[in-house]
Amino acid sequence: MGVIKEFAEALKGLKSLIVGLGITGKEFAKPGVTVHYPRKVVADKDLVTYRGHIELVGSKNDPAMPPCITCLMCQSVCPSGCIKIIKHPPPKKDPAADKNAPPEAYASGLEPKTKAAPPAKEKPVKTPKGFILDYNYCSLCGLCVQSCPVDSLRFSTEFYIADPSKKAFVYDLMARLKAQAGTATAKEKE
């Protein structure tokens, strides 16, 4: 009996092997599923959802300027410290400019009020002078984008990037935004 059982099991095993061959044989006949990279690229629907490195968003009025208010939230929340925002230096008190202003006249109250509103207090420039991203250390967590109070940051969908040098991944995002705005206006003109 034992022998018969053994043989039955062996035959069952052989059958399973043949079934396996059948499956791979069927797959052999099917077309490939890989994306043939240099000739084909990833479908757009899978690309648009990709969160690449961050980039600045152009503001409504000026597509070459971000709505960034240099609150440094992104810079401080970044776990890898790869964002660096360069602020405009605070406006210098220019003595000559001060002289041109007619503070005394206003103070005296003799000037007619219809002429002009008093010059507003000079606003500190809030837009960043530079916005540097060191993509080498970025972990793509998205905390910076999430913490931005004015929605000045977004993810790019760029992932066809490769370079032998680390320096290539230190992005000047302001320049990038300007270039993007430039191509956008050029397209509009066309």
């Binding site: 797959e27 052999f28 490939g32 599923v33 890989t34 043939h36």
Partner: peptide
């Protein structure tokens, strides 16, 4: 090539 086709990829190309 056989390996490639069985695994549904092009193999050497």
């Amino acid at each position: 090539k056989v390996a490639g086709f069985i695994q549904r990829r092009p193999g050497p190309f």
